[in-house]
């Protein structure tokens, strides 16, 4: 859904929400507290997602430095009076490059075509996260 903020609407049935969890000394990440809080609000788990107001929402802990940085740099937008954070298009591209599936490649093409991209920022991100080679491969 984040990409749809910058591109034409595309079909999706679920929402991915990246989250930052407090680090634990054991190094084990658990979503139990989050799921319990959502259960108390009446939102139940359905396989890998939680159904919130009928929308399957997947909570993904930030699993590497690129995602952590993307979250830190996310844009704050107003969605019908609710403050929401959306990843910048340059970070969405970088995450797609890192994930590397066919559908990520298609998403990169769409973002390149339709979103306003800060080329300098993208170049800096891809360099810092060793994605320059993949960017060249996908775009030349």
């Amino acid at each position: 859904m984040g990409a749809t903020f910058y591109t034409e609407p595309v079909l999706t049935f679920d929402l991915d929400v990246f989250i930052l969890l407090p680090s634990k000394t054991s190094g084990v990440i658990s979503l139990d507290a989050l799921y319990a809080a959502l259960r108390r609000r009446g939102y139940k788990e359905e396989r890998e997602a939680v159904s919130i107001e009928g929308v399957p929402v997947q909570f993904l802990p930030a699993y590497n430095p690129l995602i952590e940085e993307a979250l830190a740099q996310a844009r704050e937008i107003d969605y019908e009076g609710v403050s929401t954070r959306v990843l910048r298009a340059e970070y969405l591209i970088a995450i797609c490059l890192q994930t590397g599936r066919t559908k990520d490649r298609a998403r990169v093409a769409m973002l390149r075509e339709q979103a306003s991209i800060d080329r300098d920022l993208l170049a800096e991100i891809t360099k810092r996260h060793q994605l320059k080679e993949k960017w060249t491969l996908w775009t030349e």
Binding site: T4, F5, Y6, E8, P9, I77, Y79, E80, A115
Partner: peptide, 10 residues
């Protein structure tokens, strides 16, 4: 379509 307001895209 890409320039539509986000609620309209939803």
């Amino acid at each position: 379509l890409a320039r539509l307001p986000f609620p309209e895209k939803v």
